[in-house]
Structures are given as C-alpha cells and as structure tokens.
Simulated scan of single mutants.
Amino acid sequence: MGSTMLAVISFGRFLFAVLFIVSGAFKLLDLTATSELMAKIAIPEFLTSYTTELETMAGMPMAKMLAIAAGATELLCGVMIGLNVGARYFALLLILYMVGMTYLQHPFWNQTGPEGANTLLHALKNISLIGALFIIVGIGRGPQPAAAAAAEPSFAEE
C-alpha cells in the first residue's frame, strides 16, 4: 500500500470521526435535550437501587449523568479516532456504545407504520456505523509506510 493510500485511509478515518465529534459536542452543549432523550431509557429494575444512590451522590438525575456520559464518549472517541491515537481501542468502545444505544433508543421491533420505518432506518444507520467501526478495529492505524513498501512486490528481483 503506497503513501497515497495511507493518506486516503487517514483522511477517511478523520472524516468518519467528525460525525462522533460533532454529535458528542451537540449532546454536551444541549444537556437539557439530551437528558430528555436519555430519560426515555428504561433502567432495569435490579439497577434502580444503584441508580438512586448515584443520583444522590452526584446531585443530579440519572438522565443527565447518562447524557454527559454519552456526549463525552462520542466526543472523546471521535477525537481519538480522528487523530489516529488508539484507534482500535476507541473504535471498540464506540461499538459497545453504539450497540447499546441502538438497542435502547431504536426499538423498531415494537413499532409499526411510519414511526417503525423511521426507527428501523435509524437502527440500520447505526448498524452501518458499527460496520465502519469494525473496519477501523481491523485496520487499526493502517499499514505503516515501511511495512507497506516491504509488502509490495518488487519486479526488479526477477
């Protein structure tokens, strides 16, 4: 793989990361709206005693803590993937986050009609983002220029 291809992969990774950077920043800049979305997430019954304790300790509702965690996760992971620092690790973290958010926020299996179709579309969008994150996990930082040059066939040896 030549240096041009490496530049293309790096540029593509950066452009992909912009989505998470902007989304995370918007979540953090509008915590009220994000908290309203997070309030719709049903906390399992066996966790409510822990969440109540967390709310008391933090002095804020669980929805707001989830909003801050979601925004910070997207922003941090997006920046790190965009900068190509720990790209595999942060892509894995985003995969876990995206799987959870897709399941919790886009339950298309419970909806019908236009609302169900819209929710399914958002779930499919998230699934495609998860696929792209798996590609980042697979290539990591990408082949290094020296390794790429060594892997290319040399016709001068014939």
Rank of each mutant, 00 (worst) to 15 (best):
A147R: 14
L66P: 02
L133P: 02
L66E: 05
S128K: 11
A147C: 14
A147L: 13
E74M: 05
L66N: 03
F155D: 13
L96M: 10
I81Q: 02
I95Y: 00
A69C: 11
I81R: 02
L66R: 02
E115N: 07
Q105E: 04
A156E: 14
V85H: 14
Q144N: 13
M65I: 03
A70Q: 11
Q144M: 15
A117Y: 08
I127S: 00
L54T: 09
L94H: 07
L104S: 13
E157I: 13
T102A: 01
L121I: 03
K125T: 02
G59W: 02
L121R: 09
M60P: 06
I139C: 07
V85G: 10
V99R: 03
G71W: 09
G82N: 08
M101V: 15
A87P: 05
L54Y: 11
H122R: 10
T56A: 06
L120R: 00
V79G: 07
H122A: 06
A117L: 09
M80P: 05
L124M: 11
W109A: 01
I130E: 05
A72F: 14
T112E: 14
E53K: 11
I95C: 11
I130D: 10
M57L: 11
L76F: 14
A91K: 05
F108C: 00
K125F: 01
R88P: 09
P145R: 14
N118I: 05
A117K: 11
A151W: 10
Y89R: 13
G82C: 08
E74K: 04
N126Q: 07
Y50F: 15
T51N: 10
A70F: 05
I68P: 04
F155I: 05
A69T: 09
G116N: 00
I127H: 00
Y97R: 09
E157D: 15
P107D: 03
G59Q: 10
A91H: 05
M98D: 02
G138R: 14
L75G: 06
T51L: 06
N126M: 04
V99C: 09
Y89A: 11
K125I: 03
I127W: 01
P143E: 12
H106V: 02
I95W: 05
